[in-house]
Design a protein around this nucleic acid. Structure first.
Lengths: 209, 209
DNA sequence: CATTATTGGAGAGTGCTACTCTCCAATGTC
DNA sequence: GACATTGGAGAGTAGCACTCTCCAATAATG
């Protein structure tokens, strides 16, 4: 398959594919001459994967590159890989975590300890920053609310890991990419459920504007 | 309070505040002369709110403007307001929902019907697009997995609505902004819980990289 | 075999967003 | 009275994700 066929199969312009090649998001094709190379199905998959992560999950290309390189490295254990891919993700989102006061930090530590979670510094920092920002914005997240969010997260996480067999080969990709792509799904479902919960509570209007 | 004091209180540069004023994200101050105006605490809150929505929730300024104008309008019912604010949100994220085949559409319709949710076209379209993209990327979301996500969403949504009293005044702001800001919280918690679930399953490595 | 199309590669250019800078005369402060 | 600050508006900037242009070297086609 030449580059134009790859473009046709994926619906991505040739120029964009060249750009992805340059940026290292896509491995080079097998060169057949000095100015020609052929691409395989794995290239088609890669392009689709990149597009899904940028368009659906809203990742930057830099974050996509980090996730892909974590997935491409020989994964020691699923746990390590998950952690590596998550760091790529969190690092992307954490532009300016800034300083966090002790009270928020303690809340996060308490939550992590209570749940028996692994004390990941990057995740904890990001969470603390988010809670601080919410408070500053005048919408503090109460302990009860946070506990429900944590319950929901654990519920989802168990299902995330259960979707995949114990086979290590493709499992990491399945979990990491699947999670990335279903984060926005969860957000949309939350909106659906909120509308219903709101309607039930208010008994008011019949439909959205 | 003059503009420089507003800048000091919020930590946002004067130039940026001027920009927000121009863009209509911040109402003008009370003019005290032809070249001077004073700002109040509500301006401080607004600036912090804008920053939280852009930095934490990752909204574009255009989306922030939509959300704010929905919140500023006299809310007829909480339900309508929720809907309006959600449209602003979904519209921002849905760059290219594109075409969705019937199979995915039917899955979404079935889910919405089964849960008794209000059939919001924008939300349904976005959800269908997300499921399609996940499938294209080689990480399809199974019905069981989707059901768990929906369970979690309903769990969270009930808590979201419960955090707020029935008083209508500030309730909408509380729910809408609170949801926007806790979307990323839920994502981070999911990562925490995944690490734990993964470690428990694998019994493997001790920590993230 | 001649012509036309396509290729990989690299550099420059584009459109968009969210600022950030510069300038100005009018005010405010010391 | 001297100097700093203000609101306002326009222009400039940085980063991102492409997109376009060009090129000589191939490939495909008649």
């Amino acid at each position: 398959m030449r580059i134009s066929a790859l473009a046709d199969r994926t619906g991505v312009p040739v120029a964009t594919i060249k750009y992805y090649l340059r940026e290292g998001l896509l491995p080079p094709g097998e060169p057949t001459s000095r100015t020609q190379a052929t691409y395989g199905d794995e290239h088609v998959d890669r392009v689709r994967l990149v597009r899904a992560m940028t368009e659906s999950a809203g990742l930057s290309l830099a974050a996509v590159r980090d996730v892909l390189s974590a997935l491409d490295d020989p994964p020691r254990s699923r746990h390590d890989l998950l952690g590596a891919a998550q760091h790529a993700l969190v690092a992307d989102e954490a532009r300016s975590d800034g300083e966090v006061d002790d009270a928020v930090r303690r809340r996060v530590d308490a939550l992590v300890a209570a749940r028996g979670w692994y004390d990941d510094a990057a995740l904890a920092g990001r969470l603390a920053a988010l809670l601080r920002d919410a408070e500053r914005a005048g919408v503090p997240v109460g302990d009860e609310h946070l506990a429900v969010l944590a319950d929901a997260a654990e519920l989802v996480a168990r299902a995330d890991l259960a979707t995949v067999p114990d086979a290590p080969a493709d499992a990491a990709r399945q979990v990491v990419v699947g999670t990335l792509l279903t984060d926005p799904v969860l957000v949309v479902l939350r909106r659906f459920a909120q509308q219903q919960a709101s309607a039930r509570r208010a008994g008011g209007g019949q439909g959205a504007v």
